[in-house]
Structures are given as structure tokens and as C-alpha cells.
Design a protein around this nucleic acid. Structure first.
Length: 471
RNA sequence: GCGGCUGUAGCUCAACGGUAGAGCACUCGCCUGUCACGCGAGAGGUCGUGGGAUCAUCACCCAUCAGCCGCGCCA
């Protein structure tokens, strides 16, 4: 263990029972019969009168500690409350057969406590933090985010999110993609559509980036295969369970493709890898949250928008043929049909009306009314979108004009395409929405550690009584 | 932005036109095998805010603020 001044200090105050190296609670099973030292929090105290039980918690898990009447620590134990930070010494014992809790971590052992040092006291908790008693309004959760993050349920959500982001990176790096950082402050609106936040930029106006799209394409023209993990910002006046104003966007773009299907394949394998890693690394978290991962079969079904609409019509006669997009009901129905037909929870839909999508999306040469943009749907919701982009400079300029854009404002982007850009495409998805949908959470804000939405920047705008200035 | 619902103890909720209760948390007492420990006692609320109707309301009406959900828009 790395020796720090703090460790020396502890050794000084700890001499009366002897300083020992900290063992993580998750590893205690390997130390049965030994005297060990752990550090962590008091998850819960159960005072039996003469003897006191604790659940201690650290980043690796929980263990029961028992303080027997004869223990030198019994007096301290009586005064300790939930969430005290403590250092505890004791002997790791096998539990008697009748006391084994087979279904929980360390259920076969317990720590017979011989000493407790209080590292920090804690105020009484403002709500029930116990695993099963935890039932807090999302609003209250967000008001108490600093504390709630200690709860296993919350930690499970963000561990899964970590794995999503990590494995997005890992997979693309394994495919020789180059990671870059896109700027958050941008000079103009990239795509139109979504509302943007304006910032005062010295004596000029600038905007918070709502997508790294154009930068991603610029960097691709130099590095061929690129990705970024970036914050993006949307000023949508939407107060729903799916909207945040600040989002982690996972973006990728690749050159030298033959068709949009190459983009589909890379995105499919990326999602497949992410799911596989979650399954491998988050078994505990998934079971705690009570969710099952969606099924991705060998080859994810892929339909054109028209085919999807035909399928919906054929299934129940609801005619959405000719609509410009699938509405949420269509998406749910299509996913249900595909699940029934193939067992796949995923389905790609491609070929949207060209005019409905941004200027850079590649129109199908055989039918320019429709483009080579695609969405990946899962469990009735859009997870990812992308497709082939226009790489020909003249075609791009035509679209810029048709879409009513000012070429001056994206001149840096256009310059890249003036000098030999091969066929290319890319895709993007939001880390919070993917987390929400994988874990079947009811509200995106559960999937964002410090969510920003229309009404909230932490506690500042909540109108919480204690935060509201007196008039 | 539109529509619906909600606002009562620290948290989750209940009740009632005659000024409020429970569970958990908190304090005290009891308990040597608990594991959301248990048992007993106690403390804790000008019922979001402002008006109005009423002999009287937390309850009814109006306004306002805040929140949640759905739709729209979006990803």
C-alpha cells in the first residue's frame, strides 16, 4: 500500500491496536481467520443491547460487523450512527451455519470487531437510505444528490454508464479509431432544428455546441476513423422524462466506406460490444436494478422506412405509409413485430425523406427523395442515429443552398470537403438515454449524475424553500 | 408550448367543513444472533403562498409558485 503522510498520522493514533493495511470489504472472504483492518461507512447499525451489529460499506461492498459485549469497542459502537466514516479492526469469522445469508455479499462471514476509530461523524439522514426502504421522489433525490449517490442503486446506474462509455471507447479504439475533443463553444448553429444556448463571447455572440457533427466530419477527413465523447447542449423547452439540456454524446465517423451499410455494421458491433461488456462487468448491478439486457441477434434486422410502414400496415391495418417518419407509437409497434418475428430487440430503419434530415445526409442515388440515414431502434425507442454523409463538394454546396444555410458560417467544414473526401458516414448516441433504456429507467434524469434540465441546475433553480430568497 | 395530476412531520404517505395521524428516521429505556432487528416511551407540523366564500377549513372557490406525468418538439 502506498505510504502517505496521512498513513503515518494514522499509525500514530492507531498504535494502541496496531496499524494495519486496509483490506477492501469485497476481499474479506480471502482473509477468513485473520485479523484485518477495513475502512468505510456505517451502512446500518443494529443495536441489540449488550451487543451491536453493523453493516459496513466501502467501494467494494458490504459486510456485517459484530461487536460483542466483551469487545473493547463496545462503548464506541453504542455512539456510532449511520453514515459515520470509520476504520474498523477485527477478526474475519466464518458464520455459523444457521446465520449464513446465502443470497448476499459476504453472507457467509462476519467481522468480529475489536476496535473502531471514528474518522468522521454524520448528521442523521434526511431520508431512508436502506436498500429496501429507499423510496425517494426523483425531485428529492436530485435535491440530495450528494447523499443519494451513496446508495447502491444509484451507484449501479452510474457503474453501468461507466461501462457504456468505456466500452464505446474500447471498441472503437480496437478498430483503429482516433479519439478527439470537439469544442463546446461554437460560432454558429451546426444543424438547425434543436434550440441552442447563446453565450456572451467577449463582445460577440457564440453558442454552446449542440452536436460535434461538423467537427467530427472535419477530423475524419484527416484521420479517417474518429470518435469523441463530448458534452453537447440543447436548449429545447421540453420538460419530459427524456430531455436534458446537457448530454454526453458518443459520436463516431469513418471514411472509405462502400455504403451506409458499413456504418450500420460498425454501429451494430459497437452496441454489441457495449452490451457484452455490461453483461460481463455489471452482473451485480443488473440484478440489483432488476433489468435484463436487450437481445441482439447475429444480424440485426434492417428495414427501409417504407418497408417498416408496410409491416405495421400488414400487421394491424394501421396505415402510416407515406408518413415522413415513424412516430413513437410506430416505433413501439415495429419493435414488437420484429421481436415476435426474429427474437431481436433491435431493428435498423433507413431511408428517410431527404428533406426531413440535415443537409449533410447522403441521398439515395437511385431515389434522391430518400436518404441513406438510419436509426437503430430498441424496445420501441430510438437508440442511435447515423448514416452515410455527402462527401462530394458540389453536392454538398447544392444542399447547403437548398437548406438555406450560409456557407460562410461553415466555411471551415466546407473547405475540408473541397480537397478529396472519400465516401464516409458516422453515427451518434446519447450516453444518458442509452443508460436509461438499457436499465429501463423511467426518467433520463436518473441516468445523469447531475442532470440539467429546463428547471434545474442542481439546487439553484429548484425553488426549494430553503433556496428561495426572501422577498 | 398544451393538457392532466400533485403540494400535509426530515422521508414516504393517510385523514377530515369543527385547527391533523401512521410507517421509517430522530431522542430515551429494554433486549447476546440481529441482518430493513424487535419491544416500550417521547419529541417533531402556523397543512406551498396570497386572496375569497363560511359561524368555522389543511379540506370548498380563485389566483400564484413549485413539482410530477402525458403530448408536441427534439436526441
Amino acid at each position: 500500500m502506498h505510504q502517505t503522510p496521512r498513513d503515518d498520522f494514522c499509525r500514530g493514533v492507531w498504535y494502541f491496536i496496531g496499524y494495519m493495511e486496509r483490506i477492501l470489504i469485497g476481499k474479506l472472504g480471502e482473509h477468513v481467520g485473520e485479523t484485518v483492518s477495513i475502512s468505510g461507512w456505517v451502512d446500518v447499525r443494529r443495536d441489540q443491547g449488550k451487543m451491536v451489529f453493523f453493516d459496513f460499506r466501502d467501494r467494494s461492498g458490504k459486510v456485517q460487523g459484530v461487536v460483542l459485549p466483551a469487545s473493547p469497542a463496545i462503548e464506541v459502537a453504542k455512539d456510532i450512527r449511520n453514515e459515520y466514516a470509520v476504520r474498523v479492526e477485527g477478526v474475519v469469522n466464518k458464520r455459523p451455519e444457521k446465520n449464513v445469508q446465502a443470497d448476499r455479499q459476504n453472507g457467509d462471514i462476519e467481522l468480529e470487531v475489536t476496535a473502531i476509530e471514528v474518522l468522521a461523524k454524520a448528521e442523521p439522514l434526511p431520508f431512508d437510505m436502506s436498500v429496501s426502504g429507499f423510496n425517494l421522489d426523483l425531485t428529492a433525490q436530485l435535491d440530495h444528490r450528494a447523499l443519494v449517490l451513496r446508495h447502491p442503486r444509484l451507484q449501479a446506474i452510474f457503474k453501468v454508464q461507466n461501462v457504456i462509455i468505456d466500452s464505446f471507447r474500447e471498441y472503437l479504439k480496437s478498430q483503429d479509431f482516433f479519439e478527439f475533443q470537439a469544442p463546446a463553444i461554437t460560432p454558429a448553429v451546426a444543424e438547425g432544428g434543436a434550440e441552442v444556448f447563446e453565450v456572451n463571447y467577449f463582445d460577440k455572440k457564440a453558442y454552446l455546441s449542440q452536436s460535434p457533427q461538423l467537427y467530427k466530419q472535419i477530423v475524419m477527413t484527416a484521420f479517417e476513423r474518429v470518435f469523441s465523447v463530448n458534452k453537447i447542449f440543447r436548449a429545447e423547452p421540453s420538460a419530459t422524462t427524456r430531455h436534458l439540456t446537457e448530454v454526453v454524446s458518443l459520436d463516431a465517423e469513418l471514411a472509405f466506406i462502400d455504403s451506409w451499410k458499413d456504418v450500420r455494421d460498425v454501429s451494430e458491433e459497437t452496441v454489441r460490444y457495449i452490451l457484452k461488456e455490461i453483461e460481463k462487468r455489471c452482473a451485480t448491478e443488473l440484478s440489483l436494478l432488476g433489468t435484463k439486457l436487450p437481445v441482439m441477434i447475429e444480424k440485426t434486422p434492417t428495414l427501409s422506412l417504407t418497408e417498416a410502414q408496410e409491416k405495421i400496415f400488414a400487421k394491424n391495418g394501421r396505415d402510416v405509409r407515406g408518413e415522413k417518419d415513424l412516430n413513437p407509437e410506430d416505433e413501439r409497434e415495429l419493435c414488437a413485430i420484429i421481436k415476435e418475428e426474429t427474437g431481436s430487440d433491435f431493428v435498423y430503419v433507413y431511408g428517410y425523406p431527404t428533406r426531413k434530415k440535415p443537409f449533410y445526409v447522403y441521398p439515395n442515388p437511385e431515389n434522391p427523395e430518400f436518404n441513406e440515414g438510419m436509426d437503430l431502434l430498441c424496445r420501441g425507442v430510438e437508440w442511435l442515429s447515423g448514416g452515410r454523409r455527402i462527401n462530394n463538394y458540389d453536392q454538398l454546396m447544392t444542399h447547403v443552398k437548398e437548406w438555406g444555410m450560409d456557407p460562410e458560417k461553415i466555411s471551415m467544414f466546407l473547405e475540408a470537403f473541397k480537397y478529396g473526401v472519400p465516401p464516409e458516414g458516422g453515427f451518434a448516441f446519447g450516453a444518458e438515454r442509452m443508460t436509461m433504456q438499457i436499465l429501463e429507467l423511467k426518467n433520463v434524469r436518473e441516468a445523469s449524475m447531475f442532470p440539467r434540465d429546463m428547471n434545474r441546475i442542481d439546487q439553484l433553480l429548484t425553488g426549494h424553500p430553503s433556496e428561495t430568497p426572501e422577498k
